[in-house]
Design a protein around this nucleic acid. Structure first.
Lengths: 182, 182
DNA sequence: AGCCAAACGAGACGGTCCGTCTCGTTTCGT
DNA sequence: ACGAAACGAGACGGACCGTCTCGTTTGGCT
């Protein structure tokens, strides 16, 4: 669809612009100018600034890890705590917080972005956690994964209250009890 | 700040426009025109179409109920199931789904909308649930309320999978077990 | 009743970004 | 070497933006 070199320049442009002026400062015209690309070239592949940013973020995350990795030391409780701590760290990192919120916001209105996020980010993550739970003998692993992540997203997205140091341990404790593993 | 009659006309305008063309069709100019108001009048009180819509929705919900009411029949399990069913029904109602998503999206970028939602909608709801849990003798009622609502929002917001008929009962079952009430 | 300041309706204004459209150029497969 | 596909550039009309004046209405105060 699009030339690899073009994609690379556009990705670099959207990431640098987002880092400089936040998501609110992203426009198709701005991205095109920074990338040295025509607007038509952008519209040929992406439908909105959020779609461009999402694509760049996904490519970046794939470069880094290749696959979604869930800790698996044999100690389920410890693994889940590590996981929750990592999630909280990423969600609250000022560098990524705004970008993730922007993608989440766009996900609410643009169905294409929604299914892209689900297919390439959230889905694999949920499946990986569910697999980890299933391997430990949990009965409803999908529901367990949702029970683990739901409250984290809830607190972060809706800004109900800050995360505390001791909450993840207590939360994992409750989740394990919920799935009959305490 | 603003005259009551003006507020009423603006609220009616934003609700009718949102019902007709969805949230995407909301603009300050459009709302002002429909309400027969000057743009300056809108900007004097609200900062964005989302803020206007939120204000209208909040006023509407206050008119209807006056206070946040949580079922309290003495049967905790039944009450929570009623609550979850009601939430799912409201979240998935086509008439409100898009509006709630729009407000949630705006909540990610506009801090003013965020604290407004928290103060007048989410906060009271969470507190009411936590109170209900506390009355039943649950130890960490705030965490319990979060455990109950988090997965519901998670599934709805991120569109991971549809709600099924039997999920609420199983979910409440797990939450009660998590807070040592099963 | 009469007054005055605050709130208002209307809309002009320059500006930004939208999404579409040409046009001439570059790139790449064969 | 050639033809098609992808591209860079930017013109274009249009929608909204947020700010700004204006002259008018409204409601409280005396």
């Amino acid at each position: 669809m699009a030339r690899a070199s073009t994609r690379a320049r556009v990705h670099a442009a959207v990431l640098s612009l987002a880092a400089e002026s936040g998501f609110g400062g992203l426009t198709m015209e701005g991205i095109a100018a920074r990338a040295g690309a025509g607007k038509q070239t952008l519209y040929r592949t992406w439908s909105s600034p959020a779609a461009v940013l999402l694509d760049a973020l996904l490519e970046q995350s794939l470069d880094a890890s290749g696959e979604v990795a869930i800790p698996d030391t044999g100690d389920l409780r410890a693994d889940l705590e590590t996981l929750v701590h990592g999630m909280i760290a990423e969600l609250t990192d000022p560098a990524t917080d705004r970008l993730l919120r922007a993608v989440t916001a766009e996900l609410q209105t643009d169905p294409a972005v929604g299914s892209e996020v689900l297919d390439r980010l959230l889905g694999p993550q949920l499946r990986a956690i569910a697999d980890r739970l299933a391997r430990a003998g949990v009965e409803c692993p999908e529901d367990g994964a949702e029970l683990l992540l739901g409250p984290v997203f809830h607190r972060w997205l809706l800004r109900t209250r800050p995360f505390t140091e001791d909450w993840p341990a207590a939360h994992v404790e409750r989740v394990l009890r919920a799935v009959s593993f305490g």
